Computed example of a mutant assay.
Amino acid sequence: MKLYKFGWLFLLMVISVSSCGQKSKKDKTDFSKGDMMIRMAEIEIDSNYLDEYIAILKEEAEASVRLEPGVICIYPMFQKEEPTQIRLLEIYANKEAYESHLQTPHFKKYKTSTMAMVKDLKLIAMKSIDPESMPLIFSKSKQ
């Protein structure tokens, strides 16, 4: 069981590296303006679907950051002792970027194909305390 959990942890670490900090050259987000939209998604997944859900989530998170200039970060993770408890840190350049994200084919595919897998979903709006440090955080992820 410990090897199984380690495998999931490793997979989510790979997803995380590919899903945060890869800002497009054309993305000139000014973090200090304070108009970013940040939220945490708390998701409980039916354990019967965990492998399938992780694969779909990985595809969606990577596509969102790679294809959408306004998606700064989609950082998926799970609780170490409870892998069915997924958490996503989502950072968008602004509300418009978030609303645009909801209309993309990759998000719609994720939403429709995982609907039956999700037992519970909570979306929590967040506010950055220190947005000026954000570029430094992401630059360190490249090291």
Rank of each mutant, 00 (worst) to 15 (best):
2 K>W: 03
3 L>H: 14
5 K>S: 01
5 K>L: 06
6 F>G: 00
7 G>W: 06
9 L>H: 08
10 F>P: 15
10 F>L: 10
12 L>P: 15
13 M>Q: 06
15 I>S: 11
16 S>C: 03
18 S>R: 05
19 S>W: 02
20 C>E: 07
21 G>C: 11
22 Q>S: 13
23 K>Q: 07
23 K>N: 13
24 S>G: 07
24 S>A: 05
25 K>G: 02
25 K>V: 00
26 K>Q: 07
28 K>Y: 08
29 T>D: 09
30 D>T: 02
31 F>Q: 00
32 S>K: 08
32 S>F: 12
33 K>Y: 13
33 K>T: 02
33 K>M: 12
37 M>R: 05
38 I>T: 04
38 I>N: 05
39 R>D: 00
39 R>G: 00
41 A>M: 13
41 A>G: 14
42 E>N: 04
43 I>F: 04
43 I>Q: 12
44 E>D: 06
46 D>W: 14
46 D>A: 15
47 S>C: 03
47 S>G: 04
47 S>H: 00
48 N>P: 06
49 Y>A: 12
50 L>Q: 05
51 D>C: 06
53 Y>D: 12
53 Y>W: 04
54 I>N: 03
55 A>W: 10
55 A>H: 15
56 I>Q: 14
57 L>S: 10
59 E>K: 08
60 E>K: 03
60 E>S: 11
62 E>S: 12
65 V>M: 13
68 E>M: 03
70 G>T: 05
70 G>A: 09
74 I>T: 01
74 I>Q: 02
75 Y>E: 02
75 Y>S: 13
76 P>E: 00
77 M>P: 11
77 M>Q: 07
79 Q>V: 08
81 E>D: 01
82 E>I: 04
82 E>Q: 12
87 R>K: 08
87 R>T: 03
90 E>C: 05
91 I>Y: 01
92 Y>G: 08
94 N>R: 06
96 E>A: 07
96 E>D: 14
97 A>E: 07
97 A>Y: 06
98 Y>L: 08
98 Y>V: 11
99 E>T: 15
102 L>D: 06
103 Q>G: 09
103 Q>D: 06
104 T>Y: 01
105 P>F: 14
106 H>R: 09
106 H>F: 13
108 K>Q: 04
109 K>D: 14
115 M>S: 07
116 A>C: 06
116 A>E: 14
116 A>M: 12
118 V>T: 11
119 K>I: 04
121 L>T: 15
121 L>C: 05
123 L>F: 05
125 A>C: 04
126 M>C: 11
126 M>T: 09
126 M>S: 15
126 M>I: 02
127 K>H: 03
128 S>W: 00
129 I>N: 13
129 I>P: 04
129 I>F: 10
130 D>N: 11
135 P>C: 03
135 P>V: 01
136 L>R: 15
136 L>W: 05
136 L>V: 09
137 I>S: 09
138 F>R: 05
